[in-house]
Write a protein that binds this DNA or RNA. Structure first.
Lengths: 212, 212
DNA sequence: ATGTAATATTTTGTATGCAGAATTCATAGT
DNA sequence: ACTATGAATTCTGCATACAAAATATTACAT
């Protein structure tokens, strides 16, 4: 068994993202470093390192002398983030290995179909959606691009817990996933790319109304 | 006079980027935190904070127990970065305010022309090029996108000092800038976008041969 | 001479300490 | 009662101290 050796700052970052998705912190609230460090059972140093990382990803803001706080949410920013991820994922799909795409297309289709069937809890649906997109882009050799997508998506997770548990809109996402997979099966890469763009545009429209 | 109050980590980050562009550090070399902190006249704490930020931008790598080091360069990564910035700038241009674009188009054209005239030092040319692109995207309201572009470009600066002082290829870039500006003058946004993409593709091809 | 084990040194990762800025609270004056 | 002013408190930003991991060095056996 290879024991795990990771810097505290990374574990802290993960834990904070987890809490953020659970909706533990309201957007716009200040972070008290000493208190949070105490809760997590670590010192302020690695905590601050994690906070700086999150600030770099847009999850937090930092003001001189005033420390860190969770970046406020807005429809404008959500729109911006969706546009960015759409462009990045489109690029990732375009620059993917065609052979690999052919290979995973059936699996993508299967997942999209079984996804539309079950109507589960929001968090599970989101998890499923994330995995689907990961699989879709698994043939992209541009590692920097994949890292960037992950990072921008981290910034979007501030919004996920705002969308409460209504299951209906998620089934439409499954349809869009199905369409993307079908285009790939037909070797229609450009069709798949524009279907992916549609998926992000529609996903945005579906969610944006719920943002305060 | 409003006195400046900025965190040390930001000033340190700037200084390190400056040194990086000057070619002070070779790619792949380890960073000794104590030594570097001593040189900069600061403690290890804000230095580490700056290093973590730079690692988030892809300028540095960090391995557990082994600290930070300048990320090695490769043609593959450079290609990847160019593709990413091309896509992001294209998106930024597409989502710019058309009225603003009409307004700055003449200035962009003027700058591109006077740029092709003077053959200056590489660093100045790059500076000019950066400013031109900044002006081009100044009408983009997507702030997150502009930040992201800045961040990815920071990662690319590892490569700039590798391209030595040959002036010839830069004049071709000016031609491309001229073409982008002309499209904007004609209100041909899509034409400008694809000219911008060409600019990045060609710029990449021009530079890539010089990477070891 | 070479490889290996034990030890010393260096260097990172984390915790703690301290100075100063920001905020809060109390008090005085109107 | 309300605002303004100043003291007290809280909290951040930076420096320093400490522990553990990694690296270098030495001693020893073959």
């Amino acid at each position: 068994m290879a024991i795990e050796r990771r810097p505290l700052r990374e574990q802290i970052r993960e834990e904070l993202m987890l809490r953020l998705e659970r909706g533990d912190f309201a957007a716009g609230t200040d972070i008290n470093e000493a208190v949070l460090a105490g809760e997590l059972g670590v010192s302020r140093t690695p905590l601050r390192e994690a906070l700086i990382t999150l600030a770099g990803e847009g999850v937090l803001e930092s003001n001189q002398g005033r420390g860190f706080r969770f970046a406020p949410v807005s429809r404008k920013e959500f729109r911006e983030l969706c546009a960015i991820v759409a462009a990045l994922e489109a690029l990732a799909l375009e620059s993917s290995d065609p052979a690999h795409l052919r290979e995973v297309a059936p699996e993508l289709l299967r997942l999209a179909r079984e996804f539309s069937a079950d109507v589960a809890a929001r968090q599970e649906i989101e998890h499923h959606d994330d995995e689907w997109h990961d699989l879709l882009l698994s043939g992209c050799g541009n590692e920097r691009l994949l890292d960037l997508i992950t990072s921008v998506k981290a910034g979007m997770r501030r919004y996920t817990h705002l969308m409460s548990g209504d299951g209906t809109p998620m089934t439409r996402a499954a349809e869009e996933h199905r369409r993307i997979a079908e285009r790939l099966l037909e070797d229609d890469l450009q069709g798949a790319v524009s279907a992916l763009r549609d998926n992000w545009v529609n996903g945005m429209e579906r969610m944006i109304a719920r943002i305060p």
